[in-house]
Nucleic acid binder design. Structure first.
Lengths: 174, 174
DNA sequence: AGCGGCATGTAAGCTGTTACATGATTAC
DNA sequence: GTAATCATGTAACAGCTTACATGCCGCT
């Protein structure tokens, strides 16, 4: 699962600008994160390979947009991805790392770590519940998309509840 | 949170070989994954920087081992990590990606995807419950380590239950 | 006057992955 | 006899991150 495959999949649902894709990769997607430094070079490469096509849209009061659409070659490439084997999930958690190394910091620090994580996840949860963030083009979610986001919300809530409970049970962090 | 910081943190708990570290990065850690291609170069670099020291241990019936220990300079480096700000969690899920793109495959494929994921997570759960995998050096877990692993098990179980329930409710994948 | 949103991009660099290579021993 | 485990490593590459750069518009 590479970023350019995800881009093709998103474009299959309708044309997008690099800017919109960047925002999705930054906040909207629950399964992948990235930034503009990746999106624009990826789009150029896909264009060079004939997998997406660019259309310049002039706007008044706003900068011009480069709107990208998927081509039939791009559709084939995306098919290849869908037929490839599923990669195992990958996750990196600095939060859990610091819990593992919790013995080397004070109880107070651990409490703060957990509280901050709860705050952060609570904000993430609020984002996940905003339909405009997860589906910016006003289309309704497909059943499997709903399933994915429902799972995201579920996992997030469970995490928050788990650590809130721990805080209650261990007010001194030990 | 970089791999070399994690290595230093692990070495703080006792000397390790590159081989042992590799196994931890491959299966034992819930917050970071990697492979031998990363561990050995990282150890060399840390040694060159004076943050770890190497001791060659000859063994009979087995290849020689390079056992690495953390130095005081390495301890300082690790302190710097502990004092740095916590990075947000990063995760990449090909499974969720394929759910998001579920509209482009058959219902049967979606069912298979979910079943395979449940199988895979069930195996992961079994690993998480094996103390020898998560703590190979026979030490007992510290309270925060236990918390981290309990959360790992909890999240894993919830994921399995969530998708098992969905399979029950949607036997035809729609 | 300044900030946030819209919009696009580059360049350098780090990090980690993949694939390969070697070789001895033990268990089946 | 062959597969798995122990044990170490390299080289090439892909991929992504970070930081920077630009500029207009609308709002306050």
């Amino acid at each position: 699962m590479k970023s350019h495959q995800i881009i093709l999949g998103i474009l299959k649902n309708g044309p997008q600008t690099g800017y919109d894709l960047t925002r999705m990769f930054e906040v909207g997607l629950i399964f992948f994160n990235s930034s503009s430094g990746m999106v624009y070079p990826a789009l150029r490469k896909l264009e060079k390979e004939g997998k997406v096509s660019k259309k310049v849209v002039t706007q008044q009061g706003k900068p011009n947009k480069n709107v990208f659409s998927i081509t039939s070659l791009g559709e084939q490439e995306f098919e290849n991805y869908l037929n490839s084997s599923v990669e195992p999930d990958y996750s990196k958690s600095d939060f859990l790392a610091r819990l593992i190394f919790g013995q080397y910091v004070s109880s107070k620090s651990v409490i703060k770590l957990v509280k901050d994580e709860i705050d952060h996840e609570t904000k993430e949860l609020a984002l996940l519940k905003r339909p405009d963030v997860i589906q910016p083009n006003h289309k309704s979610l497909t059943p499997t998309q709903k399933l994915a986001y429902d799972y995201g919300i579920f996992a997030n809530k469970n995490k928050i509840e788990f650590f809130k409970q721990w805080l209650k049970d261990h007010p001194n962090g030990d």
